[in-house]
Design a protein around this nucleic acid. Structure first.
Lengths: 256, 256
DNA sequence: AAGTGGTCTAGACCACTAA
DNA sequence: TAGTGGTCTAGACCACTTA
Protein backbone atom coordinates (compact mmCIF):
# COMPACT_ATOMS: atom_id res chain seq x y z
CA UNK A 1 0.00 0.00 0.00
CA UNK A 2 1.44 3.32 -1.01
CA UNK A 3 1.67 5.84 1.76
CA UNK A 4 0.71 9.35 0.78
CA UNK A 5 3.50 11.57 1.91
CA UNK A 6 2.77 15.28 2.26
CA UNK A 7 5.26 16.96 0.00
CA UNK A 8 5.79 20.04 2.12
CA UNK A 9 6.56 17.88 5.12
CA UNK A 10 9.06 15.84 3.14
CA UNK A 11 10.83 18.76 1.59
CA UNK A 12 11.36 20.25 5.01
CA UNK A 13 12.79 17.09 6.43
CA UNK A 14 15.00 16.51 3.46
CA UNK A 15 16.59 19.91 3.95
CA UNK A 16 18.60 18.36 6.72
CA UNK A 17 19.69 19.43 10.17
CA UNK A 18 18.90 23.07 9.99
CA UNK A 19 16.41 23.22 12.71
CA UNK A 20 15.55 23.88 16.28
CA UNK A 21 11.91 23.50 15.28
CA UNK A 22 10.81 19.98 14.52
CA UNK A 23 8.02 20.84 12.14
CA UNK A 24 7.31 24.27 10.78
CA UNK A 25 3.71 23.50 9.88
CA UNK A 26 2.23 23.17 13.34
CA UNK A 27 -0.48 25.59 14.34
CA UNK A 28 1.76 26.69 17.19
CA UNK A 29 4.41 27.72 14.69
CA UNK A 30 1.89 29.64 12.65
CA UNK A 31 0.62 31.34 15.78
CA UNK A 32 4.16 32.28 16.75
CA UNK A 33 4.81 33.66 13.30
CA UNK A 34 1.67 35.79 13.36
CA UNK A 35 2.40 36.96 16.89
CA UNK A 36 5.88 37.88 15.79
CA UNK A 37 4.61 40.02 12.96
CA UNK A 38 2.24 41.79 15.31
CA UNK A 39 4.97 42.38 17.87
CA UNK A 40 7.39 43.61 15.26
CA UNK A 41 4.93 46.23 14.11
CA UNK A 42 4.57 44.69 10.67
CA UNK A 43 0.86 44.32 11.42
CA UNK A 44 0.06 47.26 13.70
CA UNK A 45 -2.97 47.37 16.03
CA UNK A 46 -6.17 47.95 14.12
CA UNK A 47 -4.86 46.73 10.80
CA UNK A 48 -6.23 43.89 8.73
CA UNK A 49 -4.00 40.90 8.29
CA UNK A 50 -4.06 38.60 5.24
CA UNK A 51 -6.89 36.11 4.86
CA UNK A 52 -6.57 32.50 5.97
CA UNK A 53 -6.30 31.55 2.32
CA UNK A 54 -3.39 33.87 1.70
CA UNK A 55 -1.60 32.88 4.85
CA UNK A 56 -1.99 29.18 4.15
CA UNK A 57 -0.31 29.68 0.80
CA UNK A 58 2.44 31.86 2.21
CA UNK A 59 3.18 29.54 5.12
CA UNK A 60 2.83 26.41 3.07
CA UNK A 61 0.19 24.71 5.16
CA UNK A 62 -3.50 23.91 5.08
CA UNK A 63 -6.05 26.59 5.73
CA UNK A 64 -7.34 24.59 8.69
CA UNK A 65 -3.97 24.97 10.34
CA UNK A 66 -4.01 28.72 9.88
CA UNK A 67 -7.56 28.73 11.18
CA UNK A 68 -6.53 26.91 14.33
CA UNK A 69 -3.67 29.32 14.96
CA UNK A 70 -5.80 32.41 14.42
CA UNK A 71 -8.64 31.02 16.51
CA UNK A 72 -6.30 30.65 19.45
CA UNK A 73 -5.16 34.23 19.05
CA UNK A 74 -8.75 35.40 18.82
CA UNK A 75 -9.59 33.49 22.01
CA UNK A 76 -6.82 35.37 23.75
CA UNK A 77 -8.24 38.65 22.55
CA UNK A 78 -5.18 39.47 20.47
CA UNK A 79 -6.99 39.55 17.15
CA UNK A 80 -10.62 39.98 16.19
CA UNK A 81 -12.23 38.05 13.38
CA UNK A 82 -15.35 38.79 11.39
CA UNK A 83 -16.71 37.01 8.40
CA UNK A 84 -16.54 38.83 5.14
CA UNK A 85 -14.43 41.52 6.79
CA UNK A 86 -11.32 39.66 7.77
CA UNK A 87 -8.98 39.48 10.73
CA UNK A 88 -7.93 42.60 12.53
CA UNK A 89 -5.22 43.12 15.13
CA UNK A 90 -7.02 44.19 18.29
CA UNK A 91 -6.74 47.93 18.77
CA UNK A 92 -6.92 48.01 22.54
CA UNK A 93 -4.65 45.53 24.20
CA UNK A 94 -7.25 43.79 26.28
CA UNK A 95 -5.85 40.50 27.38
CA UNK A 96 -7.98 37.57 28.38
CA UNK A 97 -6.46 35.36 31.03
CA UNK A 98 -7.73 32.28 32.75
CA UNK A 99 -8.39 31.79 36.42
CA UNK A 100 -8.56 28.31 37.88
CA UNK A 101 -10.99 28.15 40.75
CA UNK A 102 -10.22 25.06 42.71
CA UNK A 103 -11.92 23.46 45.63
CA UNK A 104 -10.39 24.84 48.80
CA UNK A 105 -9.06 21.47 49.86
CA UNK A 106 -6.95 21.38 46.70
CA UNK A 107 -5.91 24.97 47.21
CA UNK A 108 -4.53 24.19 50.65
CA UNK A 109 -2.94 20.91 49.73
CA UNK A 110 -1.25 22.58 46.77
CA UNK A 111 0.50 24.78 49.32
CA UNK A 112 1.88 21.68 50.97
CA UNK A 113 -0.16 22.40 54.08
CA UNK A 114 -2.46 20.21 56.11
CA UNK A 115 -6.10 20.73 55.33
CA UNK A 116 -8.76 21.08 57.97
CA UNK A 117 -12.34 22.21 57.81
CA UNK A 118 -14.71 23.40 60.52
CA UNK A 119 -18.39 24.19 60.28
CA UNK A 120 -19.02 27.16 62.51
CA UNK A 121 -22.72 27.75 61.91
CA UNK A 122 -25.61 26.01 60.28
CA UNK A 123 -29.08 27.43 60.49
CA UNK A 124 -32.26 27.97 58.57
CA UNK A 125 -33.18 31.59 58.17
CA UNK A 126 -34.39 34.33 55.86
CA UNK A 127 -31.94 35.45 53.18
CA UNK A 128 -29.72 38.48 53.60
CA UNK A 129 -30.11 41.37 51.23
CA UNK A 130 -27.26 40.14 49.05
CA UNK A 131 -28.51 36.56 49.07
CA UNK A 132 -31.99 37.68 48.05
CA UNK A 133 -30.59 39.49 45.09
CA UNK A 134 -28.20 36.76 44.06
CA UNK A 135 -30.75 33.98 44.36
CA UNK A 136 -33.63 36.02 42.96
CA UNK A 137 -36.10 35.41 45.76
CA UNK A 138 -37.95 37.38 48.39
CA UNK A 139 -37.67 37.64 52.15
CA UNK A 140 -40.39 35.11 52.82
CA UNK A 141 -38.22 32.27 51.59
CA UNK A 142 -36.27 30.19 54.11
CA UNK A 143 -32.77 29.10 53.27
CA UNK A 144 -30.05 27.02 54.85
CA UNK A 145 -27.07 29.16 55.77
CA UNK A 146 -23.82 27.36 56.44
CA UNK A 147 -20.69 29.08 57.63
CA UNK A 148 -17.37 27.28 57.55
CA UNK A 149 -13.73 27.96 57.85
CA UNK A 150 -10.76 26.27 56.30
CA UNK A 151 -7.41 25.89 58.00
CA UNK A 152 -4.01 25.38 56.43
CA UNK A 153 -1.63 23.96 59.00
CA UNK A 154 -4.00 25.20 61.70
CA UNK A 155 -3.83 28.78 60.36
CA UNK A 156 -6.99 30.29 58.94
CA UNK A 157 -6.89 30.13 55.17
CA UNK A 158 -10.39 31.08 54.17
CA UNK A 159 -13.87 31.35 55.55
CA UNK A 160 -17.10 30.90 53.76
CA UNK A 161 -20.78 31.64 54.06
CA UNK A 162 -23.10 29.83 51.72
CA UNK A 163 -26.85 30.09 51.23
CA UNK A 164 -28.52 26.96 49.95
CA UNK A 165 -31.91 26.95 48.31
CA UNK A 166 -34.38 24.25 49.42
CA UNK A 167 -34.57 23.06 45.84
CA UNK A 168 -30.94 22.10 46.08
CA UNK A 169 -31.26 20.21 49.35
CA UNK A 170 -34.21 18.28 47.99
CA UNK A 171 -32.03 16.80 45.26
CA UNK A 172 -31.35 13.09 45.22
CA UNK A 173 -28.45 12.58 47.60
CA UNK A 174 -29.30 15.96 49.05
CA UNK A 175 -28.77 17.13 52.58
CA UNK A 176 -32.40 17.59 53.47
CA UNK A 177 -32.37 14.41 55.48
CA UNK A 178 -29.13 15.00 57.32
CA UNK A 179 -28.57 18.60 58.35
CA UNK A 180 -25.34 17.64 60.10
CA UNK A 181 -23.81 16.58 56.82
CA UNK A 182 -21.84 19.77 56.38
CA UNK A 183 -19.90 19.20 59.55
CA UNK A 184 -18.15 16.37 57.76
CA UNK A 185 -18.01 17.68 54.22
CA UNK A 186 -17.87 21.39 53.37
CA UNK A 187 -20.88 22.59 51.40
CA UNK A 188 -18.67 23.64 48.52
CA UNK A 189 -17.28 20.16 48.10
CA UNK A 190 -20.68 18.61 48.49
CA UNK A 191 -21.89 20.97 45.79
CA UNK A 192 -19.01 20.07 43.49
CA UNK A 193 -19.77 16.40 43.99
CA UNK A 194 -23.50 16.70 43.58
CA UNK A 195 -23.41 18.92 40.50
CA UNK A 196 -20.69 17.37 38.35
CA UNK A 197 -20.44 20.35 36.08
CA UNK A 198 -21.12 23.55 37.88
CA UNK A 199 -22.59 26.51 36.08
CA UNK A 200 -22.77 29.96 37.51
CA UNK A 201 -21.24 33.36 37.95
CA UNK A 202 -18.17 34.43 39.84
CA UNK A 203 -17.07 37.85 40.97
CA UNK A 204 -14.28 39.22 43.07
CA UNK A 205 -14.22 42.22 45.36
CA UNK A 206 -12.50 43.71 48.38
CA UNK A 207 -14.35 44.13 51.65
CA UNK A 208 -13.81 44.91 55.30
CA UNK A 209 -13.93 41.85 57.53
CA UNK A 210 -16.93 41.97 59.78
CA UNK A 211 -18.44 39.83 62.49
CA UNK A 212 -17.98 36.12 62.11
CA UNK A 213 -15.68 36.61 59.14
CA UNK A 214 -13.16 38.48 61.27
CA UNK A 215 -13.48 35.92 64.04
CA UNK A 216 -13.04 32.97 61.71
CA UNK A 217 -10.06 34.45 59.93
CA UNK A 218 -8.60 35.65 63.25
CA UNK A 219 -8.14 39.19 62.04
CA UNK A 220 -9.29 42.55 63.39
CA UNK A 221 -12.73 43.64 62.26
CA UNK A 222 -12.26 46.08 59.39
CA UNK A 223 -9.26 44.25 57.98
CA UNK A 224 -9.40 44.15 54.18
CA UNK A 225 -10.34 40.75 52.87
CA UNK A 226 -10.74 39.48 49.36
CA UNK A 227 -14.19 38.13 48.69
CA UNK A 228 -15.06 35.64 45.97
CA UNK A 229 -18.76 35.41 45.33
CA UNK A 230 -20.23 32.51 43.45
CA UNK A 231 -23.76 31.90 42.33
CA UNK A 232 -24.41 28.31 41.36
CA UNK A 233 -27.13 27.50 38.87
CA UNK A 234 -29.19 24.34 38.58
CA UNK A 235 -31.19 24.06 35.40
CA UNK A 236 -30.57 27.74 34.87
CA UNK A 237 -31.96 28.75 38.26
CA UNK A 238 -29.77 30.01 41.09
CA UNK A 239 -29.64 27.54 43.97
CA UNK A 240 -26.56 28.51 45.95
CA UNK A 241 -24.84 31.75 46.83
CA UNK A 242 -21.40 31.42 48.34
CA UNK A 243 -19.09 34.10 49.64
CA UNK A 244 -15.54 33.12 50.42
CA UNK A 245 -13.22 35.47 52.28
CA UNK A 246 -9.46 35.42 52.20
CA UNK A 247 -7.11 37.32 54.51
CA UNK A 248 -4.98 40.15 53.06
CA UNK A 249 -1.92 37.99 52.54
CA UNK A 250 -3.83 35.91 50.01
CA UNK A 251 -3.02 36.41 46.35
CA UNK A 252 -5.08 35.24 43.43
CA UNK A 253 -2.69 34.48 40.60
CA UNK A 254 -3.95 34.51 37.05
CA UNK A 255 -2.23 32.76 34.24
CA UNK A 256 -2.38 30.08 31.68
CA UNK B 1 -17.15 15.67 -11.15
CA UNK B 2 -18.88 13.73 -8.45
CA UNK B 3 -19.38 15.59 -5.22
CA UNK B 4 -18.73 13.56 -2.13
CA UNK B 5 -21.78 13.81 0.03
CA UNK B 6 -21.40 12.92 3.69
CA UNK B 7 -23.91 10.15 4.24
CA UNK B 8 -24.65 10.97 7.87
CA UNK B 9 -25.47 14.52 6.98
CA UNK B 10 -27.81 13.43 4.22
CA UNK B 11 -29.62 10.81 6.21
CA UNK B 12 -30.24 13.29 8.95
CA UNK B 13 -31.64 15.87 6.63
CA UNK B 14 -33.79 13.37 4.85
CA UNK B 15 -35.39 12.37 8.11
CA UNK B 16 -37.49 15.47 7.80
CA UNK B 17 -38.64 18.20 10.16
CA UNK B 18 -37.89 16.55 13.44
CA UNK B 19 -35.46 19.06 14.73
CA UNK B 20 -34.83 22.18 16.68
CA UNK B 21 -31.13 21.66 16.03
CA UNK B 22 -30.00 22.51 12.53
CA UNK B 23 -27.18 20.05 12.35
CA UNK B 24 -26.48 17.41 14.92
CA UNK B 25 -22.87 16.91 13.90
CA UNK B 26 -21.42 20.18 15.09
CA UNK B 27 -18.73 20.05 17.73
CA UNK B 28 -20.99 22.13 19.94
CA UNK B 29 -23.63 19.42 19.77
CA UNK B 30 -21.08 16.75 20.61
CA UNK B 31 -19.85 18.83 23.53
CA UNK B 32 -23.40 19.28 24.78
CA UNK B 33 -24.03 15.56 24.52
CA UNK B 34 -20.90 14.70 26.48
CA UNK B 35 -21.67 17.36 29.06
CA UNK B 36 -25.14 15.94 29.41
CA UNK B 37 -23.84 12.48 30.10
CA UNK B 38 -21.50 13.83 32.73
CA UNK B 39 -24.26 15.86 34.36
CA UNK B 40 -26.67 12.97 34.33
CA UNK B 41 -24.19 10.81 36.18
CA UNK B 42 -23.81 8.37 33.31
CA UNK B 43 -20.11 9.23 33.33
CA UNK B 44 -19.31 9.99 36.97
CA UNK B 45 -16.29 12.06 38.09
CA UNK B 46 -13.08 10.11 37.82
CA UNK B 47 -14.36 7.66 35.23
CA UNK B 48 -12.98 7.04 31.78
CA UNK B 49 -15.20 7.95 28.87
CA UNK B 50 -15.10 6.21 25.48
CA UNK B 51 -12.27 6.98 23.09
CA UNK B 52 -12.59 9.52 20.32
CA UNK B 53 -12.81 6.66 17.87
CA UNK B 54 -15.73 5.07 19.67
CA UNK B 55 -17.54 8.35 20.15
CA UNK B 56 -17.14 9.32 16.52
CA UNK B 57 -18.81 6.07 15.49
CA UNK B 58 -21.57 6.40 18.04
CA UNK B 59 -22.31 10.03 17.24
CA UNK B 60 -21.93 9.54 13.52
CA UNK B 61 -19.31 12.18 12.92
CA UNK B 62 -15.63 12.47 12.18
CA UNK B 63 -13.09 11.92 14.90
CA UNK B 64 -11.81 15.44 14.39
CA UNK B 65 -15.19 16.75 15.44
CA UNK B 66 -15.16 14.70 18.61
CA UNK B 67 -11.62 15.88 19.22
CA UNK B 68 -12.68 19.51 18.94
CA UNK B 69 -15.55 18.99 21.37
CA UNK B 70 -13.43 17.18 23.92
CA UNK B 71 -10.61 19.68 23.61
CA UNK B 72 -12.97 22.48 24.55
CA UNK B 73 -14.11 20.54 27.59
CA UNK B 74 -10.52 19.84 28.56
CA UNK B 75 -9.71 23.54 28.24
CA UNK B 76 -12.50 24.28 30.69
CA UNK B 77 -11.07 21.78 33.14
CA UNK B 78 -14.11 19.51 32.93
CA UNK B 79 -12.27 16.51 31.56
CA UNK B 80 -8.63 15.48 31.54
CA UNK B 81 -6.99 13.81 28.58
CA UNK B 82 -3.85 11.73 28.39
CA UNK B 83 -2.44 9.85 25.47
CA UNK B 84 -2.61 6.12 25.68
CA UNK B 85 -4.71 6.41 28.83
CA UNK B 86 -7.84 8.07 27.57
CA UNK B 87 -10.21 10.78 28.69
CA UNK B 88 -11.30 11.03 32.29
CA UNK B 89 -14.02 13.13 33.88
CA UNK B 90 -12.24 15.52 36.24
CA UNK B 91 -12.54 14.31 39.82
CA UNK B 92 -12.45 17.67 41.55
CA UNK B 93 -14.75 20.21 40.05
CA UNK B 94 -12.16 22.88 39.41
CA UNK B 95 -13.53 25.26 36.89
CA UNK B 96 -11.41 27.47 34.73
CA UNK B 97 -12.97 30.78 33.85
CA UNK B 98 -11.70 33.67 31.83
CA UNK B 99 -11.08 37.19 32.97
CA UNK B 100 -10.88 40.03 30.47
CA UNK B 101 -8.50 42.71 31.60
CA UNK B 102 -9.27 45.79 29.65
CA UNK B 103 -7.59 49.11 29.44
CA UNK B 104 -9.18 51.38 32.02
CA UNK B 105 -10.47 53.78 29.40
CA UNK B 106 -12.55 50.94 27.96
CA UNK B 107 -13.64 49.86 31.41
CA UNK B 108 -15.04 53.29 32.17
CA UNK B 109 -16.59 53.86 28.77
CA UNK B 110 -18.27 50.45 29.00
CA UNK B 111 -20.08 51.81 32.06
CA UNK B 112 -21.44 54.60 29.95
CA UNK B 113 -19.44 57.12 31.95
CA UNK B 114 -17.15 59.89 30.86
CA UNK B 115 -13.50 59.01 31.04
CA UNK B 116 -10.86 61.26 32.52
CA UNK B 117 -7.30 60.67 33.51
CA UNK B 118 -4.95 62.62 35.77
CA UNK B 119 -1.30 62.09 36.42
CA UNK B 120 -0.69 62.83 40.08
CA UNK B 121 3.00 62.05 40.39
CA UNK B 122 5.93 61.36 38.14
CA UNK B 123 9.40 60.95 39.57
CA UNK B 124 12.59 59.00 39.27
CA UNK B 125 13.49 57.08 42.38
CA UNK B 126 14.70 53.83 43.88
CA UNK B 127 12.28 50.92 43.73
CA UNK B 128 10.04 49.97 46.60
CA UNK B 129 10.43 46.60 48.20
CA UNK B 130 7.60 45.14 46.14
CA UNK B 131 8.88 46.70 42.93
CA UNK B 132 12.37 45.33 43.55
CA UNK B 133 10.98 41.88 43.89
CA UNK B 134 8.62 42.09 40.96
CA UNK B 135 11.18 43.58 38.60
CA UNK B 136 14.06 41.48 39.88
CA UNK B 137 16.51 44.26 40.55
CA UNK B 138 18.31 45.82 43.49
CA UNK B 139 17.99 49.09 45.33
CA UNK B 140 20.73 50.78 43.34
CA UNK B 141 18.58 50.88 40.23
CA UNK B 142 16.63 54.05 39.42
CA UNK B 143 13.14 53.73 38.03
CA UNK B 144 10.43 56.03 36.81
CA UNK B 145 7.42 55.94 39.11
CA UNK B 146 4.18 57.29 37.71
CA UNK B 147 1.00 57.61 39.74
CA UNK B 148 -2.29 58.29 38.06
CA UNK B 149 -5.94 58.24 38.75
CA UNK B 150 -8.90 57.57 36.52
CA UNK B 151 -12.25 59.23 36.87
CA UNK B 152 -15.63 58.00 35.68
CA UNK B 153 -18.04 60.93 35.48
CA UNK B 154 -15.70 62.83 37.79
CA UNK B 155 -15.88 60.11 40.44
CA UNK B 156 -12.70 58.18 41.25
CA UNK B 157 -12.77 54.85 39.48
CA UNK B 158 -9.27 53.54 39.96
CA UNK B 159 -5.79 54.70 40.83
CA UNK B 160 -2.54 53.31 39.68
CA UNK B 161 1.14 53.28 40.52
CA UNK B 162 3.49 51.97 37.90
CA UNK B 163 7.23 51.44 37.99
CA UNK B 164 8.96 51.63 34.63
CA UNK B 165 12.36 50.17 33.97
CA UNK B 166 14.85 52.34 32.03
CA UNK B 167 15.09 49.61 29.43
CA UNK B 168 11.46 50.24 28.61
CA UNK B 169 11.78 54.00 28.32
CA UNK B 170 14.76 53.61 26.03
CA UNK B 171 12.65 51.80 23.49
CA UNK B 172 11.96 53.36 20.11
CA UNK B 173 9.03 55.65 20.66
CA UNK B 174 9.86 55.55 24.35
CA UNK B 175 9.26 58.22 26.91
CA UNK B 176 12.88 58.84 27.77
CA UNK B 177 12.87 62.04 25.80
CA UNK B 178 9.57 63.42 27.04
CA UNK B 179 8.96 62.82 30.74
CA UNK B 180 5.72 64.78 30.53
CA UNK B 181 4.23 62.27 28.14
CA UNK B 182 2.24 60.49 30.81
CA UNK B 183 0.26 63.57 31.63
CA UNK B 184 -1.43 63.15 28.28
CA UNK B 185 -1.53 59.40 27.95
CA UNK B 186 -1.71 57.05 30.93
CA UNK B 187 1.33 54.77 31.22
CA UNK B 188 -0.85 51.71 30.90
CA UNK B 189 -2.20 52.81 27.55
CA UNK B 190 1.20 53.84 26.37
CA UNK B 191 2.42 50.41 27.37
CA UNK B 192 -0.42 48.72 25.53
CA UNK B 193 0.36 50.74 22.44
CA UNK B 194 4.10 50.27 22.59
CA UNK B 195 4.03 46.55 23.28
CA UNK B 196 1.34 45.28 20.91
CA UNK B 197 1.11 41.92 22.61
CA UNK B 198 1.75 42.17 26.30
CA UNK B 199 3.20 39.26 28.20
CA UNK B 200 3.32 39.08 31.93
CA UNK B 201 1.76 38.00 35.18
CA UNK B 202 -1.35 39.23 36.93
CA UNK B 203 -2.47 38.77 40.49
CA UNK B 204 -5.30 40.08 42.59
CA UNK B 205 -5.41 40.86 46.29
CA UNK B 206 -7.16 42.93 48.91
CA UNK B 207 -5.36 45.73 50.71
CA UNK B 208 -5.95 48.67 52.96
CA UNK B 209 -5.86 51.98 51.16
CA UNK B 210 -2.87 53.99 52.27
CA UNK B 211 -1.38 57.39 51.52
CA UNK B 212 -1.79 58.61 48.00
CA UNK B 213 -4.06 55.72 47.13
CA UNK B 214 -6.63 56.80 49.73
CA UNK B 215 -6.32 60.40 48.59
CA UNK B 216 -6.72 59.58 44.93
CA UNK B 217 -9.69 57.32 45.46
CA UNK B 218 -11.18 59.80 47.94
CA UNK B 219 -11.67 57.18 50.64
CA UNK B 220 -10.57 56.95 54.25
CA UNK B 221 -7.12 55.50 54.80
CA UNK B 222 -7.56 51.86 55.77
CA UNK B 223 -10.53 51.35 53.48
CA UNK B 224 -10.35 47.96 51.76
CA UNK B 225 -9.34 48.23 48.13
CA UNK B 226 -8.91 45.61 45.50
CA UNK B 227 -5.43 45.60 44.01
CA UNK B 228 -4.51 44.23 40.61
CA UNK B 229 -0.82 43.75 40.18
CA UNK B 230 0.70 43.31 36.75
CA UNK B 231 4.24 42.59 35.76
CA UNK B 232 4.93 43.26 32.12
CA UNK B 233 7.69 41.39 30.36
CA UNK B 234 9.78 42.49 27.41
CA UNK B 235 11.79 39.75 25.80
CA UNK B 236 11.17 37.68 28.90
CA UNK B 237 12.51 40.31 31.29
CA UNK B 238 10.28 42.33 33.60
CA UNK B 239 10.15 45.98 32.60
CA UNK B 240 7.04 47.33 34.31
CA UNK B 241 5.28 46.72 37.59
CA UNK B 242 1.82 48.20 37.90
CA UNK B 243 -0.53 48.23 40.85
CA UNK B 244 -4.09 49.32 40.25
CA UNK B 245 -6.44 49.99 43.13
CA UNK B 246 -10.19 49.91 43.03
CA UNK B 247 -12.59 51.15 45.70
CA UNK B 248 -14.73 48.63 47.62
CA UNK B 249 -17.75 49.05 45.43
CA UNK B 250 -15.82 47.68 42.46
CA UNK B 251 -16.58 44.16 41.34
CA UNK B 252 -14.47 42.03 39.05
CA UNK B 253 -16.81 39.78 37.13
CA UNK B 254 -15.52 36.57 35.65
CA UNK B 255 -17.17 34.72 32.86
CA UNK B 256 -17.05 33.79 29.26
C1' DA C 1 4.74 -2.86 21.24
C1' DA C 2 0.42 -1.02 21.16
C1' DG C 3 -3.18 2.23 22.14
C1' DT C 4 -4.68 6.83 22.79
C1' DG C 5 -4.94 11.61 21.93
C1' DG C 6 -2.78 15.54 18.91
C1' DT C 7 -2.35 17.29 14.58
C1' DC C 8 -2.07 18.06 9.42
C1' DT C 9 -4.21 17.89 4.89
C1' DA C 10 -7.23 18.68 0.91
C1' DG C 11 -11.53 19.50 -0.23
C1' DA C 12 -16.10 20.82 0.54
C1' DC C 13 -20.04 23.29 2.22
C1' DC C 14 -22.14 26.58 5.40
C1' DA C 15 -23.04 31.16 7.81
C1' DC C 16 -22.59 35.60 8.20
C1' DT C 17 -22.31 40.25 6.43
C1' DA C 18 -20.66 44.34 3.82
C1' DA C 19 -21.42 46.24 -0.55
C1' DT D 1 -24.00 38.80 -4.34
C1' DA D 2 -19.51 37.91 -3.25
C1' DG D 3 -15.91 37.34 0.15
C1' DT D 4 -14.49 35.94 4.53
C1' DG D 5 -14.26 33.05 8.48
C1' DG D 6 -16.40 28.58 10.65
C1' DT D 7 -16.82 23.91 10.37
C1' DC D 8 -17.05 18.96 8.82
C1' DT D 9 -14.88 14.91 6.74
C1' DA D 10 -11.83 10.99 5.71
C1' DG D 11 -7.54 9.61 5.99
C1' DA D 12 -2.99 9.76 7.53
C1' DC D 13 0.99 10.28 10.51
C1' DC D 14 3.03 11.73 14.85
C1' DA D 15 3.88 11.89 20.00
C1' DC D 16 3.39 10.35 24.17
C1' DT D 17 2.77 6.81 27.62
C1' DT D 18 1.69 2.54 29.68
C1' DA D 19 2.49 -2.28 29.50
Amino acid sequence: MSQSIPSSRLSVHSSGADGDRRRPNTWQAIRAEVLGRIRSGEWPPGSLIPTEQMLSVEMGCARATVNRALRELADSGIIQRRRKVGTRVAATTSRRTTLSLRVIRDEIEALGATYRHEMTECLTCAPSQAAMQALQLDASERLLLVKSRYLADARPHCCEAIWLHPRLLAMPGGAAADPGLFAAEPPQEWLARSLPVIQGHVSILAEAASGSCAVNLEVEPGTPVMAIERVTLLDGLPVAFARQFYPPRHRLVLGD
